[in-house]
Amino acid sequence: MTAGADEAPLAPVMTAHRAGLLGCRSCGRVWPQDHAICDRCGAALVPPDRRGLQYVWAWWLAGLVMYVPANLFPMMRTQTFAGLQGSSEATILEGVVELMHYGNYDIAIIVFVASVIVPMAKFLSIAWLAMVAGRPATVEQAHTRLKIYEVVEFIGRWSMIDVFVVAILSALVQLGFVASIHPGPAAVSFALSVAFTMLSAQSFDPRLIWRGLPLRSRTDDQGKD
């Protein structure tokens, strides 16, 4: 955030960790380090250290495992009894190709971005953030990492679009539609993959991004700004 960077003070900033305190990630209240649970909001207090990353990696791996079948198996099966298409099965990518085939390029791009680009970018970003977390960084690098984390956190849920599309299309069958559309196994594994990566991103503690910053050494913010 440039606004924040511009207003950044010259002196190093005091953090809860440095002061020997523990900040609540849920409500912001600050407690002595021996507190386990925030008395104000009831959230568990966790120190900003790399131990928390094991949850990030566990959910990340679960998401990746689910992402493989999500791409190999069909998202849905379409059977049109009097239609032009006959019976067809489409994976995520085939669905995008099909949309382009019928000239719906804008919708094809939305689906491609939501179901292919975003999940891939998410896996890479979370893995990278978790790997460099707590490692020394400059202020600029920390701001970039936080920005990436915020984008990942914001955009991850939008991958659910394709799951909703399949759900709505299957529901149309219930409307007396003269075609049948059934969700394929990929719909479930893709939904789980999105949910697991969301949990992975939520488990990541952004405070770790800033842990590597040399706060009070000679090369602190002072020199950089």
Partner: peptide, 9 residues
């Protein structure tokens, strides 16, 4: 109050 994103007091 500690910032939930960067721990600054």
């Amino acid at each position: 109050m500690a910032c939930p994103r960067c721990d600054a007091l």
